[in-house]
Design a protein around this nucleic acid. Structure first.
Lengths: 231, 231
DNA sequence: TTCGAATGTGACAGTTGCGTGACGAGTTCA
DNA sequence: TGAACTCGTCACGCAACTGTCACATTCGAA
């Protein structure tokens, strides 16, 4: 897993440096911005995983920035933690109403900051909805992370599991190698397309002992398909 | 087992939010009230399993509220934990005399709060209603805080106990390290995710002499799972 | 049938994830 | 006060997993 990127929007350089220092030590990749205008530029070119935004900024309040981010489809999913100087109750209320995911009052300990960041990021990762998928004799229970044929469990590696999960949630459809890389591996990984073949092979091999390999079908010239109907 | 309901009675919104936030992340259902009047309304319509009551409230002191609750048949069984700003011995004494089940001074850590809540709920559980969890040869008796295999008791540290308890109340499900930190350690703590591994290890080690370590299973790339079915 | 392109398959080396023992700091209890 | 716990972190090592390659096989168009 690559390092998470955090964008720190804070006008006071001293504070910004301190925060950045602490975050880098904790293994995050840090980008900085002095004001809202610069923040917007950074958002576009670094696509941060989380933002720390000071309440008081020279050009526009952090709250307004947050609000406007949450209004845009592009940016609404980026979690925001607001930094405020005083623990004014009113601020907190409007901060959360404005769409911030958490707030923290200065002064704060590095540990507290890290705790909030971790908590917010965890929350941002949504819990899956569909739980038990069934196709022919094959069952995939996502909550227990088990795949089985009847009573017998089928051991799968992480990638094979994700691949099968994707297929079972999108049955009867052909996906090109490129599409599979996007949706199963994740948009910004670069691996050879033929790598997909290998994992298809591994998945089939795991299904073989149960004669279920026919569920994973090759569509020559197009890609692969998961289907209960025979090819 | 459905989620336990906790009613938080605290006038300062900031503190209330923080507490509620932590409790929700730990899996509780949280209701909030700003003062004693509102608290009474919530008690009636939500029947909480436990109450957290601030000492200083605008309309009536938390102590008085507690006293009056303990006088009524309807409400005397609801456990109450008092929150106070200072750790004055005097307060503590009168707090407990007033019928509170426990007492915690601000500031407190999320884990401390969770620990007290669990302890109080355990104590409050009616003696007869054995909340004993069993899985294979393993028994966890929450009322006596004992874990045993057959006749032999298994010694566990506090964290290992909470971990096992959480697992046994959520069997057959995979939890990531992050989720475990949320639900076992408490929502706002920052510790390395690998710390979970170490406690898993300690738990397994304690179960080893009874060949029960297989109940705690690793799901590579996903987290850990408690299951009686073999991996 | 033949040939080139697409796909299947086994092996390999680098990487990652997890298990494990050790250690220092902080707590609790006698 | 000191001994016994407990906790979080670290470093090391192994086993599982990953991506890539080379070679084999299959398919379809001509």
């Amino acid at each position: 897993m690559t390092a998470k990127r955090i964008l720190v929007v804070e006008d006071e350089k001293a504070i910004r440096d301190m925060i950045a220092f602490g975050l880098r030590r904790a293994g995050y990749e840090v980008r900085e911005a002095q004001d809202c205008r610069e923040a917007r530029a950074r958002i576009v070119d670094t696509r941060p995983d989380l933002m720390l935004v000071d309440w008081m900024l020279p050009d526009m309040s952090g709250l307004e920035l947050t609000r406007s981010l949450k209004r845009s489809k592009e940016t609404e999913e980026i979690p925001v933690i607001l930094l405020t100087a005083r623990s004014e109750e009113q601020d907190k209320v409007s901060g959360l109403e404005g769409g911030a995911d958490d707030y923290i009052t200065k002064p704060f300990s590095p540990r507290e900051l890290l705790a909030r960041i971790q908590a917010v990021m965890r929350r941002a990762a949504p819990a899956g909805a569909a739980d038990v998928l069934v196709a022919d004799g094959l069952t995939l229970d996502d909550s227990s992370h088990r795949v089985s044929a009847g009573e017998r469990e089928i051991p799968l590696g992480p990638t094979e599991y994700r691949l099968l999960h994707f297929f079972m949630t999108h049955p009867e459809r052909v996906f090109s190698r490129g599409q599979l890389l996007d949706r199963v591996w994740g948009g910004n990984t670069y691996v050879e397309e033929r790598t997909v073949d290998v994992h298809i092979r591994r998945l089939r091999k795991a299904l073989e002992p149960f004669s279920l390999e026919r569920l994973v079908q090759t569509v020559r010239g197009a890609g692969y398909r998961f289907s209960t109907r025979d090819a």
